[in-house]
Simulated scan of single mutants.
Amino acid sequence: MANLIKETVHSVDSAALLRLLSRRPRMLALGEPTHGEDTLLHLRNELFRQLVEEGYRTIAIESDCLMGLVVDEYVARGEGVLDEVVERGISHGWGALAANRELVRWMRAHNEGRPAAEQVRFAGFDGPLEITGAASPRQALTALHDHLAARLDTGLLPCTRETLDRLLGTDEQWTEPAAMMDPARSAGQSAEAGRLRLIADDLAALLEEQAPRLTAAGPREEWERACLYARTATGLLRYHHWMADRSPSRLARLVGVRDQMMARNLLALAERGPVFVHAHNTHLQREQSSMRMGGQRLEWWGAGALVDARLGAEYAFVATALGTIRHRGVEEPAPDSVEGLLYALPEDRCLVDTRRLAEALGDARPAPRVSPWFGYFPLDPDRLDGGDGLVFVKDVPPA
């Protein structure tokens, strides 16, 4: 068995990764099984630098799509100061991670003096969401309204800016921390919220209806940003609606809406050209995702599954699995687990041909590994051949 396993592994670099694939995909997604580990993020950075040489020009990470505009302005035009940019432009507190700062610094240095066609771009593709709640729709909705009001006859708009501000009310009602656990504390199904959903839908439809005029009137980038505001406004209002829901399907709908927002952002980025994506395995895998939350088992289709349904062979997914994260209590895997078999190899990290590995293991797959720490999602042996490859990292030290 050990020799068969050895025959499935390669070095971790972009050339080996692309050789695993039947074609060069428009969207290449690298998953991670846990968040916040610089070791994994430095590996992501290394692969992206190599993929830029292969023609990939955009990196999209699991971070707030609106905050990400701050980072993209910095890497494309040098607007801002690096430390402030990563703090303001990368959500979930991940701007403090050294590897994320290094990614942004390298992208800016790479772009210096290059023509726009050769520049690399940054995007967050998550909604303005946290596990504890969601942002106010104000930023996205008012930006969309202002974009249209500045370019079209205001009589075409469904309401004035003053009406929009009145319906939005205070941001605190939208960001109420207790709303995640208590639907009654959410403003998502108020009369005002219902009216805002109709307005957001009308504004998004107007943006689409007027596309020939709007795309001719200014840079393509302005149009793409307005489309981002439209997707975010409608998605956020839908998310808030389900936060106020009292049915048993509430949490499942919330995670589903979030990944739908992610998928719509990714599909828009894919229209630019080749994209390298980095996020949690559960968001990027082709199979249905699941987790336990609030005492329930939730199942939903992640962004990767939704994108795969649209792009087909133009989407490729490579998962990541780990041996140890000792500072999190994750010790060496059992020798008979998939992670244990890979841990026995001499390489500190390797790229695994998962289809060949699945063939080597046969029908009698090892039992899934059980992690003592909730933050690490072990590999599912029955889903090995659902991806296009696997990156295995032997040990993850503390930052």
Rank of each mutant, 00 (worst) to 15 (best):
E7G: 12
E7I: 00
V9W: 03
H10S: 03
H10E: 01
S11H: 07
V12T: 01
V12G: 00
V12M: 01
D13Y: 01
A16R: 05
A16G: 10
A16S: 13
L17S: 03
R19K: 13
L20H: 01
L20V: 05
S22E: 14
S22I: 02
S22Q: 14
P25Y: 02
P25M: 09
P25A: 07
R26N: 04
M27N: 03
L28G: 06
L28T: 05
A29C: 06
L30S: 07
L30R: 04
G31T: 00
P33I: 05
P33N: 05
T34Y: 08
T34I: 13
T34P: 10
H35D: 05
G36Q: 04
T39D: 03
T39P: 03
L40T: 13
L40D: 09
L40C: 10
L40F: 08
L41G: 10
H42E: 09
H42T: 04
N45P: 12
L47E: 01
L47T: 04
R49S: 01
R49F: 00
R49K: 04
L51A: 00
V52F: 06
E54D: 13
G55H: 02
T58K: 02
T58L: 03
I59A: 00
I59M: 08
I59T: 04
A60Q: 05
I61F: 03
I61V: 15
D64E: 10
D64F: 08
L66F: 14
L66A: 09
M67R: 13
M67F: 02
L69Y: 12
L69G: 12
L69P: 05
V70F: 10
E73W: 07
Y74T: 04
V75G: 12
A76F: 11
A76L: 14
A76V: 15
R77D: 14
R77I: 08
G78C: 11
G78T: 11
G78N: 15
V81F: 12
V85T: 11
V85L: 09
V85R: 09
V85W: 07
V86T: 10
E87P: 04
E87H: 12
E87G: 10
I90T: 09
I90R: 05
S91L: 06
H92F: 15
G95M: 10
G95D: 11
L97H: 08
A99H: 06
